[in-house]
């Protein structure tokens, strides 16, 4: 067995630390250490998007990312976006547009959509497909997901028009 390495990073805004095996993936570490069950390994090859995690503002596949590499980083999961009672605008939009069926791929979809809207506040269908094409939904709720991204974009634009910065608008409003 290789040596454990202690990593320190911010998880959904809070400082944390965890001793990890060098071969442990980010999805394994987040579930084992912090019960971040929104981060799910499905295909194990970075293709389905169920393990989408944000590291230093970039979406990555948690199943292909070594946990040790987030040492010193800012890590975000869906758990950090909103809560049951206070959803983020993207989460609200997914509920309103029914952008899911079984829900297993949903956190990954929401993470990607959130990142997309930070980069591009008013994406076209085409741009949504480009950005989200690495996230798969076996229930095939794709039309509803596209609608949800448009709806979320409207919500975010309304928020920024009301004076919120894009970075705060994307989070649940408390």
């Amino acid at each position: 067995m290789a040596e454990l390495q202690t990593i320190r990073f911010r998880l959904n805004g809070r400082p944390v630390e965890l001793a990890v095996q060098p071969y442990e993936t980010l999805v394994e570490a987040l579930r084992r250490g912090f019960q971040m069950y929104s981060v799910r390994e499905s295909c194990g090859q970075g293709l389905c998007g169920c393990c989408t995690v944000n590291v230093d503002g970039r979406a990555v596949s948690g199943c292909l990312y070594l946990a040790v590499l987030v040492d010193g980083c800012d890590v975000q999961t869906v758990e950090g976006l909103g809560t049951l009672n206070q959803l983020s605008p993207v989460q609200e939009a997914f509920v309103e547009c029914e952008g899911f069926q079984c829900g297993f791929c949903t956190p990954g979809m929401i993470m990607m959509a959130t990142q997309l809207l930070q980069e591009n506040p008013d994406p076209t269908d085409e741009e949504i497909k480009h950005y989200m094409s690495g996230n798969l939904c076996r229930c095939a709720a794709y039309p509803e997901i596209i609608a949800a991204v448009h709806r979320a974009a409207e919500k975010l634009r309304a928020q920024t028009a009301a004076g919120n910065t894009p970075a705060t608008a994307i989070m649940a409003q408390r």
Binding site: R58, S61, L64, N135
Partner: peptide, 12 residues
């Protein structure tokens, strides 16, 4: 680049 694998792979 836009059709190469996916955004998460391209990020890394």
């Amino acid at each position: 680049m836009q059709t190469l694998s996916n955004v998460r792979v391209r990020n890394v």
